[in-house]
Design a protein around this nucleic acid. Sequence first.
DNA 1: GTGGGTGGTTACCTTAAGGTGAGTGGATGA
DNA 2: TCATCCACTCACCTTAAGGTAACCACCCAC
Lengths: 115, 115
Amino acid sequence: MTRRDAYVCGIDAAIDVVGGKWKVLILWALEGGPCRFGELRRGIPGVTEKVLASHLRELEGDSIIFREEAFEGAVRRVTYALTPLGVSLNEALGPLGAWGREHLLGERSAHHEAL
Amino acid sequence: MTRRDAYVCGIDAAIDVVGGKWKVLILWALEGGPCRFGELRRGIPGVTEKVLASHLRELEGDSIIFREEAFEGAVRRVTYALTPLGVSLNEALGPLGAWGREHLLGERSAHHEAL
DNA sequence: GTGGGTGGTTACCTTAAGGTGAGTGGATGA
DNA sequence: TCATCCACTCACCTTAAGGTAACCACCCAC
């Protein structure tokens, strides 16, 4: 998804933010609350650490998520969570998710609650 | 956007359908009614004929749009229009478009009506 | 007869997104 | 002591999406 200089309309721009291969899955995972790096890696089967890290940094750059690094004693604990903007993005993705579930996935995941 | 074999959730799948570089712009253009190939090409500045043709064929394959070819005398007239599924997709994209307009485009196109 | 419009196709090339696999440095566990 | 977890980074490679430019057949107007 090449960062476009000038957007023609809103979805155009939104798709750009959310168009990375694993980004909606990251947003989906963070819906349930903050996650650590390792939790995300395990929670999104197939994503590699490199790609996960770069996606996270892009989402952070777009102010969709924020990163919090803390040390308990000397142990690193990095947590990712949705910003208010990220929460609103997830809400805006709701109808699209419902559409996809209804028309693309068939019935088999129709009982999948969020997004 | 690599066609994924198994989708995890609805948006995942929907983003795949709509993730091509010019696809939402095509949908946006067709919102206003059926268009001919040349109209789309002129209406979407920057898209090339090759990419437009392949995007149209993919959208047609996903049953988002349909193609109608007619001959008036000996003159070709090819028209593209949204299917009911395409209309529902456009509706589902509405909130995402609004989100993008509000949060990514600033005020300068806030008065842009559709999508 | 030539320039433009119709709706494309074809071969080729570029680029960036994503994947592979190894390494890092400290801490903790067996 | 060796291994493993944590959160990454780095160098390299592959692949597919998209771009470039030429070409096609057919028609019409000038």
